[in-house]
Design a protein around this nucleic acid. Structure first.
Ligand SMILES: [Zn+2]
Length: 345
DNA sequence: CGAATTTGACCAGCGC
DNA sequence: GCGCTGGTCAAATTCG
């Protein structure tokens, strides 16, 4: 039955096997060597919006991702910083659906070849009393009903964890971030021919979840949404979790405690975007509780696959300094003109 | 044999 | 109140 593998489902699986060798091997992302094509896609996609937004919840999400990029126009970015986070102004016209506003943070790396967009949700700040919810309590398992047992039904709105969406332009969605993920579900996206895969950290007490889905129009764009923060440094890096993103991918978005190495296979054509998904519409003074990749520079500079040695990840470790800095910076150069326009209804 | 993956079913939240 | 979608679990299956 499955002798032929599930290629029909997703070719990513086969690709995931891509043995990320020590050397930066370029899988099939080579096609993206041409930056032009990249922009082209983004533009088209943005316009190519489906009017069937009857309930576009997370879909709009991708929609935006497909946008922007064509930027990198100003050298000011490079001049200012190597990795700049530019929060895109949220779309004024928000659909009547549950689509929240996301502050897109576009990372403009010095490399014109690749652009990184980051997005993180600051919902964590929404917590009123209990912020960390390492819920591990499982005292009610007498449920003989088997099936879906939803023991904990305390507060309906208990899903406020920091989410980070990674936009990676790569055929491989199994980006090795150095952690082991176990697939626990897969659902087909509404307006997308590609299914969405749900992954969970195999760590014992790590409730970090990962959501991987592809853009409907751009199968080359993989959107990886991380939810939660790793409570462990690193399980074990079987092989160089790096080897990817030489220096193109610069994620400045909060690292879920371990999401450091995320790269498409494209040596010079991989594009990684980092998305920010704030739950609240007012993300003004809300400090982003996202632990930035402090190790980023660390791992970037050195080719050592063992970056998490001295760095520790916390559930909520808002680097006020970094954040404030970035934020202020962003505001200063807030380019709310880049994209967003493309998205019409 | 163990672990990881697959797939279907079920549940909760939201919209209408 | 019903229907829809998204999200998760759990059993079965497969791979290493
Ligand atoms: Zn983990």
């Amino acid at each position: 039955m499955e002798g032929k593998k599930k290629e029909s489902t997703e070719r990513e699986n086969s690709l995931k096997n891509t043995p990320f060798p020590d050397r930066m091997m370029i899988p099939e992302t080579t096609s993206f060597s041409n930056p032009n094509s990249l922009f082209d896609i983004s533009c088209e996609q943005a316009i190519n919006y489906d009017n069937q937004h009857q309930k576009s919840s997370s879909f709009g999400f991708i929609d935006m991702l497909s946008v922007q990029d064509f930027s990198t126009p100003s050298s000011i970015f490079e001049d200012l910083l190597p990795n700049i986070t530019i929060p895109l102004a949220p779309p004024l016209h928000s659909p009547p659906s549950t689509v929240p506003e996301y502050s897109e943070v576009v990372n403009t790396p010095a490399t014109p070849n690749s652009s990184s967009m980051s997005s993180s949700s600051t919902e964590a700040a929404a917590n009123d009393d209990h912020k960390k919810n390492e819920e591990e309590e499982e005292q009610d398992q007498q449920k003989t009903t088997k099936k879906q047992l939803k023991p904990k039904k305390k507060n309906p709105k208990r899903q406020r964890e920091p989410r980070f969406a990674f936009m990676t332009k790569s055929e491989i969605d199994h980006l090795d971030d150095g952690y082991r993920w176990r697939k626990y579900g897969q659902k087909a996206v509404k307006n997308s021919p590609f299914p969405r895969s749900y992954y969970r950290c195999t760590s014992t007490a790590c409730g970090v979840k990962k959501r991987v889905e592809r853009s409907s129009e751009d199968p080359s764009i993989v959107v990886t949404t991380y939810e939660g923060t790793h409570t462990h440094p690193c399980p074990i890096t079987p092989r160089g979790s790096f080897g990817i993103m030489p220096e193109t991918t610069i994620g400045s978005g909060g690292g879920g405690g371990g999401i450091s190495s995320v790269g498409g296979g494209g040596g010079g054509g991989s594009t990684s975007h980092f998305l920010n998904i704030p739950p609240l519409f007012h993300h003004h003074e809300q400090l982003t509780p996202q632990p930035y990749f402090h190790n980023l520079s660390n791992f970037r500079t050195s080719t050592n696959p063992t970056f998490p040695q001295s760095y520790r990840e916390r559930p909520f470790c808002p680097s006020a300094s970094s954040l404030a800095r970035d934020h202020g910076l962003l505001q200063d150069m807030l380019p709310s003109q880049m994209l967003k326009d493309t998205k019409e209804e």
